Amino acid sequence: MASAADPGDSAASEFQAVGGRLERGLIWVFIVVPTLALLPAMYFAWGGWIGWHDLLLLVVFYVITTTGIGTGYHRCFTHGSFKSKRGLKIALAIAGSLALEGPVIRWVADHRKHHKFSDREGDPHSPWRYGTTAWAVTKGFVFAHAGWVLWGVDRAEPRHYAPDLLRDRDMAAISRHFRSLAAVSLLAPALIGGLLDRSWHGAATGFFWGTLVRVALMHHVTFSINSICHVTGKKPFEARDRSGNVWWLAILSQGESWHNLHHADPTCARHGVLKGQIDINAWIIRRSEQLGWAYDVKWPDQDRLGKKRTATA
Rank of each mutant, 00 (worst) to 15 (best):
9 D>F: 00
13 S>W: 10
23 E>Y: 14
29 V>K: 07
29 V>S: 07
34 P>S: 04
35 T>D: 00
38 L>K: 06
40 P>R: 10
49 W>K: 02
55 L>S: 01
56 L>W: 12
57 L>G: 02
60 V>P: 01
60 V>Y: 00
61 F>Q: 01
65 T>H: 03
65 T>M: 06
68 G>E: 10
71 T>N: 04
73 Y>F: 15
74 H>C: 11
74 H>V: 08
85 K>R: 15
89 K>V: 04
90 I>C: 08
99 A>G: 11
106 R>M: 06
109 A>V: 03
121 E>I: 09
124 P>A: 09
127 P>Y: 09
128 W>G: 05
135 W>G: 00
141 F>A: 14
143 F>T: 03
147 G>T: 10
152 G>F: 07
159 R>M: 07
161 Y>P: 01
165 L>P: 08
166 L>Y: 12
166 L>C: 09
169 R>F: 05
169 R>D: 15
170 D>L: 03
171 M>H: 11
173 A>Y: 12
177 H>V: 11
182 A>N: 03
189 P>W: 05
194 G>T: 05
199 S>R: 01
211 T>Y: 15
219 H>P: 02
221 V>H: 11
226 N>T: 05
227 S>Y: 06
232 T>R: 14
233 G>S: 06
239 A>L: 00
243 S>E: 09
248 W>Q: 09
270 R>D: 03
272 G>M: 13
283 W>N: 05
286 R>E: 08
298 K>R: 15
302 Q>N: 11
303 D>S: 12
310 T>K: 09
313 A>I: 05
